[in-house]
Amino acid sequence: DLRKKIVDLHKSGSSLGAISKRLKVPRSSVQTIVRKYK
Protein backbone atom coordinates (compact mmCIF):
# COMPACT_ATOMS: atom_id res chain seq x y z
CA ASP A 1 0.00 0.00 0.00
CA LEU A 2 1.45 3.34 -1.10
CA ARG A 3 0.23 5.24 1.96
CA LYS A 4 1.89 2.77 4.30
CA LYS A 5 5.15 3.03 2.33
CA ILE A 6 5.09 6.81 2.53
CA VAL A 7 4.34 6.80 6.26
CA ASP A 8 7.06 4.20 6.91
CA LEU A 9 9.64 6.19 4.94
CA HIS A 10 8.63 9.34 6.79
CA LYS A 11 8.95 7.59 10.16
CA SER A 12 12.42 6.42 9.23
CA GLY A 13 13.43 10.03 8.66
CA SER A 14 13.17 10.58 4.90
CA SER A 15 12.27 14.09 3.78
CA LEU A 16 9.09 14.68 1.78
CA GLY A 17 11.12 15.49 -1.32
CA ALA A 18 13.14 12.30 -1.02
CA ILE A 19 10.00 10.21 -0.59
CA SER A 20 8.31 11.80 -3.59
CA LYS A 21 11.36 11.18 -5.80
CA ARG A 22 11.74 7.63 -4.60
CA LEU A 23 8.11 6.64 -5.11
CA LYS A 24 7.58 8.94 -8.12
CA VAL A 25 4.56 10.70 -6.65
CA PRO A 26 4.00 14.45 -6.41
CA ARG A 27 5.44 16.08 -3.31
CA SER A 28 2.04 17.55 -2.48
CA SER A 29 0.53 14.05 -2.35
CA VAL A 30 3.24 12.93 0.05
CA GLN A 31 2.60 15.99 2.20
CA THR A 32 -1.16 15.33 2.31
CA ILE A 33 -0.73 11.68 3.28
CA VAL A 34 1.83 12.51 5.97
CA ARG A 35 -0.40 15.25 7.35
CA LYS A 36 -3.41 12.90 7.51
CA TYR A 37 -1.28 10.30 9.23
CA LYS A 38 -0.20 12.73 11.95
Rank of each mutant, 00 (worst) to 15 (best):
K36A: 12
R35S: 09
K36S: 09
S28P: 06
T32R: 15
K11V: 10
L2I: 12
V34Y: 02
I19S: 01
R27D: 01
V25H: 03
V34S: 02
V25S: 04
I6M: 04
K36Y: 12
L2M: 09
L9E: 02
I19M: 02
L23S: 00
K11R: 13
R3L: 11
K38L: 14
L9M: 14
S14Y: 15
G13S: 02
L23M: 07
S12N: 11
V34A: 03
D1V: 13
K24L: 08
I19G: 01
I19D: 00
R22W: 09
L16I: 15
Q31H: 07
S12H: 09
R27V: 11
T32V: 13
I19R: 02
G17E: 10
K4R: 12
D1E: 12
S12T: 10
H10D: 02
I33W: 02
R27L: 14
G13N: 03
L16C: 11
A18P: 02
S29G: 06
P26R: 10
K21H: 07
L16M: 11
S28T: 10
Y37F: 11
S14R: 10
S20C: 08
S14K: 13
Y37N: 04
L16N: 08
L16A: 08
K38E: 10
G13I: 02
K21T: 07
G13A: 02
A18T: 09
P26L: 06
I19F: 01
K36M: 12
K4F: 08
R35Q: 10
K4N: 09
K5A: 12
V25Q: 04
V7Y: 10
K11G: 05
I33P: 01
A18Y: 11
R27G: 02
G17D: 10
H10V: 09
S28D: 07
V34E: 00
D1M: 13
S14W: 15
I6S: 00
V30M: 01
K5M: 14
R27M: 12
K36R: 14
P26Y: 05
K5R: 13
Y37L: 09
P26K: 10
R3H: 12
D1I: 13
V30D: 02
S15F: 01
K5E: 07
P26W: 06
K5N: 07
R35Y: 06
K36H: 10
I19V: 02
Y37R: 04
R22A: 15
P26S: 12
L16H: 06
V30C: 07
S15I: 00
I33G: 02
Y37S: 05
P26V: 06
Y37A: 06
R27A: 04
Q31V: 13
K21V: 07
A18E: 14
S15V: 02
V25K: 04
D8K: 11
L9Y: 05
V7W: 14
R27K: 12
S12K: 12
R3G: 07
S28Q: 12
V34M: 07
L16D: 05
L9C: 09
L23K: 01
G13E: 01
L9Q: 04
K5L: 14
I19Y: 00
K11H: 07
K4T: 10
G13T: 01
G17A: 14
S15P: 05
V7S: 03
R3V: 14
L9W: 06
S15E: 03
V25E: 02
Y37M: 08
R35V: 05
I19H: 01
P26H: 08
L16G: 03
R35G: 07
L2K: 06
R3C: 14
K4S: 09
T32H: 13
Y37V: 05
S12I: 07
G17I: 11
S15G: 09
K24I: 04
D1G: 12
P26Q: 07
I33Q: 03
L23F: 07
S29T: 15
L2G: 03
V30A: 04
V7P: 01
I6H: 00
D8W: 15
D8Y: 13
I6K: 01
I33H: 05
